[in-house]
Design a protein around this nucleic acid. Structure first.
Lengths: 155, 155
DNA sequence: TTTACTGCAAAGTGTTTGCAGCGAT
DNA sequence: ATCGCTGCAAACACTTTGCAGTAAA
């Protein structure tokens, strides 16, 4: 039973923020200060931020950013497949820089920690859906909530 | 590779509405007209309704139902594990009467049809998460969007 | 100089809530 | 008769939008 092997996703970036601010993303038309900032924050953080915290982080660095721009930029980045949106049970929507396909999230209902993992069984399921139902999968998302080792111990 | 076998869930109910209105559910304290009505609609429909359409359906039968009551009743039914909430990519939330565990949904982005299927690999994944990460899964939900056979053909 | 992008405030969406009256028990 | 439930409207949280000004090209 090889399929549902769970393995932690290797963290793609172990510093706080990658030093070089890198090239501006192909966001839309113009690489504005605000867009670069928001993009940089998302690209370099380990956290899964919601719109509000992303806004606060951005504003701490440069006050000339508005919440609307954060939303507009998120939409842009989603369209360009540069960031993914995670929607959890309780409606919280977080954003993260696009990583490898096939990595998923579990969230601890008690401490809020988000753990990432990979499981190739989902990719296999996608193939099966195509084969057996003729269904062409565009988006496959799995949301798992529960209690992490630490929190289930202290319950 | 037995694991990600996809199979269509057998429809639990093939009539339009089951004839007998059945016993009142253990909803909370009181089995009111409104609660019975909402419960009955959810129990007997094949569709996955959102709050609004559930409200319209209910109001068509008995005008003395309000949208707030629909929301309140849905919350109640969710708490009692009598209905499940499905949250799709585009935010639409639908409700369905609780069926067997381990059945999931895929939705056609073109025609909106919701197809149900089972896949035991997710249950196995749950076991693995427990075993390997010590993570106690409370809720496991998978949302798949894409194009059904018919719609992918006509694209 | 052009016109895409931004901040602001206002509008919109889906859901929840406070309250006085209603009705299941 | 009690007090849990309801309808209503108002509040709510989050997101989107119109517009006049700003700035990237």
């Amino acid at each position: 039973m090889e399929c549902p092997r769970v393995r932690l996703t290797t963290k793609s970036n172990n510093g706080k923020r990658s030093s070089a601010s890198a090239s501006a993303p192909a966001l839309g038309q113009r690489a504005t200060r605000q867009r670069k900032l928001i993009y940089d924050i998302l690209r370099s953080t380990e956290d899964h931020l919601d719109a509000e915290s992303l806004y606060r982080k951005a504003r701490d660095i440069d006050s000339r950013v508005s919440l609307s721009t954060v939303y507009r930029t998120i939409a842009l980045l989603k369209e360009s497949d540069l960031v993914d949106e995670l929607v959890f049970e309780d409606d919280r929507r977080c954003y993260e820089f696009r990583k490898e396909v096939g990595h998923h999230h579990i969230r601890c209902l008690s401490c809020g920690e988000i753990i990432e993992f990979e499981c190739d069984c989902l990719e296999k399921m996608r193939a099966r859906l195509k084969q057996e139902l003729g269904f062409e999968v565009e988006a496959l998302k799995i949301d798992i909530s529960g209690y992490c080792r630490k929190c289930s111990a202290s319950r």
